[in-house]
Design a protein around this nucleic acid. Structure first.
Length: 843
RNA sequence: GGGCCCUUAGCUCAGCCCGGCUAGAGCGCUUGCUCGACACGCAAGAGGUCACUGGUUCAAGUCCAGUAGGGCCCACCA
């Protein structure tokens, strides 16, 4: 075919050119006629579209894309869909800030509502339906930006397979799976203490917690024995004295043996409390005796449950102390004290209580400043409180050892890349201390698809759950009536109540294999892609996304959702610090793509070893760009001789065959690495070989290639053949430039060509040492010229090569090329230690 | 408190699983070079007690034990 090699090849504009070409050709379209064995399925992480674009996203996705492209070239049909995680709190927050609105579910829907042009302060309250409409609108915009970024980066996803975690199909899948869990008893509802974010006014799950080190103050507070004797506890939360239900010490603690079974009264409130024993009480913490409140921390919950203590909760879901005086405070003095703290926030009450205790003589000694870990919602700004509320849970092994063991087994069967990441999973499962709380008291998400019967008094009976017909999914119980009821019966005695909550975003994204594979509506497709081959993801969401996906797959299919989990490393800023919005060191990808090009950014990402933390490094990007430019220029040379296409028969020169022999090794090593998902090693191997190909082989054959006849034809064919191999080796990493060069003289896409294999070189290779030794001699000649500070064009007056006989034979086989490259006329050979003596002509 | 990862040239990192020839790459630095692919370039060079201490071995950057520093994850907030 005719060759179309440009005079001055460049990188500019390649992204756009090839993205639209691939799109119109359907290059990456998934062929669903293939069988499961022929398919390589990727459970792509759906990025949260409501955050800013971030180098962390680019990093992992590009690495995965290189794996996808390799598998496609090695003969697999790659199932590579892209999803958007738009449901959930990040979107709500973004909408609130972007438009300056707040969702108030009590407001009626306003069909004419339009968001203010500037976010007002304070924000304007709008109805739930208006709010959700804004969420949908904004995420649609955000998704376009993301898709554009992914296309510019050259992710080879099949864009016809996209999904969003809030779209109807995802909602249907999510609700169907939830109802299946409910049916089998894996999901249940319970009224219990939960960790609660008072700002977001929602319950949060164990997986969403983080500890933050906060300053606290130990208050030494006196409780009173009937005989007037004081018992001192130390607490950082004196505001909870009013919700105290008991004092507790370790059963073996000698100091408190006499107190167990007796009672004390609380300071200020005068509430009578038992003194109990429990082994969780630590003798060397504080005074060794603690107050149990309902609930100050999760240990309180344990004590409360195990010791069967009463519930005296005072902090409400809005974070304030309840307004009415609790009924367990009976004394007039106690009531008066409570009046002073009613309706206020815990940190205010803490100060007030300290003052009141001081005044009453119940606060002893100096206040002691400490720093201690406090539980926060990972997205929240205030410490979590524990409040009692009805929530939905999915059993996750946190309370059942059999299930926990089963999940640990599955985790062991999964192939972790790198394997030490499996330990994180193991520790997480071993450390689970409760079931997965999936209900959220929020708005933009998949509704929990149930209703409850109301009794004759209009009181909901949470044991009588009404579920929808599967055909009606997705449903919104707050606006749709359950089967067998009409909307008029909503809230009426004998009628129904729709669950107002939505599911945790992970309750839906834990089903990405089922959503992308169309478990609910296309069983034929699902059979062809499930279980998937790889789950690529970041290390920070092993406890959430990976774990919950594995759990749902176990419940629904009794097997792993994928065979391999490839865990990428963490992205650090150029100074090797963790990137975070609060520090303000987040690096965004678009300016970098503009400056260095997509290939450069991809090269940087693919240089990050699997599972290894990697810093944003502009230097590495520059190298990537240099490599891409080099590929263009070297290709121009290799294809610049007109004439025929590569003819294997024509490759007769020993050095050409020697070069091909070396390439076999490169192909084998790159292939082995990629089979183990080690894209970085494959790139490194290809790159090192490519540079010596340009620096040595190209220089050595240059003179012969410009000539004519059989020896020139040998060079032309060898150049084309080796270039074709290099382009395919680089295609997974540098998709644009390799496609560009491929298009100069080949039909079709390099990304649909076959991955190079050693069989391609059958009968074409020679002694690999010829090129190696000849290159060494050439290097010695160059060194001589460099030392003489003269041009590389300087002629060589005499060239003596000493070495073992086999080395001398190797050089002899390439003598013509060597002399031409070295600008010499003859070589003298001598046996002995390897040595090259060069004498230069006068300049 | 428990666990995992890291520590190799001025910088960023390979090499360690499976011990073995003078420990590699790129950037930066130094010195040259406008040769018919490439100045978004080319060639050559300098630069390292492989964190530390012990041990195993004929042989340790590589295996084992420990120490120190850095990072991450988990853990009941009295």
């Amino acid at each position: 075919m005719t060759r179309n090699v440009p005079e001055k090849p460049g990188l500019e504009g390649l992204e756009e050119k090839w993205d639209s070409h691939w799109e119109s050709e359907g290059t990456f379209r998934f062929d669903r006629s293939k069988t499961r064995e022929e398919i390589f399925a990727i459970d792509t992480p759906p990025p949260t579209v409501s955050g800013s674009l971030h180098m962390g996203s680019v990093f992992g996705y590009v690495q995965t894309d290189s794996v996808a492209r390799y598998r496609r070239m090695s003969g697999k049909e790659v199932f590579y869909p892209m999803g958007w995680d738009d449901n959930g709190l990040p979107t709500e927050r973004r909408v609130q800030n972007f438009y300056g609105v707040r969702c108030d579910p009590s407001l009626p829907y306003d069909p004419d509502f339009a968001p203010p042009s500037e976010p007002p302060d304070p924000p304007v309250s709008i109805s739930r339906r208006n709010f959700i409409a804004l969420c949908h609108g904004l995420t649609a915009e955000d998704e376009k930006v993301f898709e554009h970024l992914w296309r510019t980066l050259g992710l080879s996803v099949d864009w016809t397979q996209s999904y969003a975690t809030i779209d109807d199909h995802s909602q249907r899948t999510s609700q169907k799976a939830f109802l299946a869990n409910l049916e089998r008893g894996e999901a249940y509802t319970q009224d219990a203490p939960v960790l609660w974010d008072v700002d977001f006014k929602t319950a949060v799950a164990q997986a969403e917690l983080e500890d933050r080190e906060r300053p606290g103050t130990y208050h030494r507070v006196a409780f009173h024995r009937p005989d007037g004797e004081k018992v001192f506890i130390e607490t950082t939360r004196p505001e909870l004295v009013c919700s105290c239900v008991a004092l507790v010490a370790h059963p073996d603690d000698d100091r408190y043996q006499g107190l167990f079974g007796s009672s004390v009264t609380s300071p200020l409130f005068g509430v009578e409390l038992p003194v109990v024993a429990h082994e969780l009480a630590e003798p060397d913490k504080g005074s060794g005796i603690a107050m149990i409140c309902t609930w100050g921390d999760t240990t309180d919950v344990t004590w409360w449950r195990e010791l069967d203590l009463p519930t005296r909760a005072v902090i409400q879901q809005n974070g304030r102390f309840q307004a009415e005086v609790p009924e367990w405070i009976e004394s007039e003095a106690g009531k008066a004290v409570y009046e002073q703290i009613a309706g206020r926030y815990p940190n205010q009450v803490r100060k007030t209580m300290a003052e009141l205790l001081e005044a009453s003589g119940d606060l002893e000694g100096e206040l002691k400043q400490v720093s201690h870990p406090v539980k926060f919602y990972e997205k929240g700004d205030r410490p979590l409180e524990i409040v009692s509320s009805r929530q939905w849970y999915i059993r996750n092994g946190g309370r059942e050892d059999d299930l926990r063991k089963k999940l640990l087994e599955l985790g062991e069967r999964l192939d972790w890349v790198p394997d030490f990441m499996g330990v994180r999973f193991k520790h997480w499962v071993e450390g689970l201390n409760g079931d997965w709380l999936i209900s959220r008291q929020r708005f933009f998400g998949v509704p929990i698809p149930v209703w409850y019967h109301l009794d004759d008094q209009g009181i909901p009976d949470y044991d009588r759950v009404i579920t929808p017909n599967e055909g009606s999914l997705p449903v919104d119980p707050t606006s749709q009536a359950p089967p067998g009821f009409s909307e008029e019966q909503r809230g009426q005695p004998g009628g129904f109540l729709g669950d107002r909550d939505i599911m945790d975003t992970w309750a839906t994204s834990s089903l990405t294999p089922q959503i992308a594979g169309h478990w609910d509506d296309d069983p034929d497709l699902f059979e062809r892609v499930f279980p998937m081959d790889i789950r690529p993801q970041g290390p920070e969401i092993i406890r959430t996304w990976l774990f919950s996906t594995l759990l749902r797959s176990y419940y629904e299919h009794d097997q792993l959702p994928w065979n391999h989990a490839t865990i990428n490393g963490w992205i650090l800023d150029p100074d090797r610090k963790k990137m975070s919005k609060s520090i303000g060191n987040v690096v965004t990808p678009i300016p970098l793509i503009e400056e260095y090009g997509s290939e450069a950014v991809r090269y940087w990402a693919c240089n990050g070893r699997p599972g290894t933390d990697t810093a944003v490094d502009f230097g590495v990007m520059k190298i990537g760009r240099r490599l891409a430019v080099k590929i263009l220029n070297a290709s121009r040379f290799a294809l610049g001789f007109g004439g025929d296409d590569a003819d294997p028969e024509a490759i007769t020169e020993p050095i050409d065959r020697s070069m091909l022999a070396g390439l076999i090794d490169v192909v084998e090593r790159a292939t082995t690495a990629l089979e183990k998902f080690d894209y970085a090693r494959a790139l490194e191997v290809a790159e090192a070989s490519f540079w010596s190909w340009t620096d040595d082989y190209l220089e050595l054959v240059k003179g012969r290639a410009y000539g004519e006849g059989g020896d020139a034809a040998s060079a032309h064919s060898a150049l084309q053949l080796s270039l074709s191999v290099y382009l395919r080796l680089f295609a997974p990493f540098l998709p644009f430039v390799t496609e560009e060069v491929w298009s100069w003289w080949r039909q079709g896409s390099v990304h649909r060509s076959s991955w190079p294999s050693p069989e391609e070189f059958d009968g074409l290779t020679g002694d690999g040492r010829i090129l190696e030794v000849t290159s060494d001699v050439l290097t010695a000649v160059r060194r001589a010229k460099s030392d003489a500070k003269t041009s590389m064009r300087t002629g060589v007056a005499s060239l003596q090569v000493s070495g073992a006989q086999e080395d001398l034979d190797a050089v002899k086989a390439a003598e013509g090329d060597l002399l031409e490259a070295a600008r010499g006329t003859s070589v003298d050979y001598g046996t002995g230690e390897f040595d090259v003596v060069v004498e230069l002509e006068d300049a």
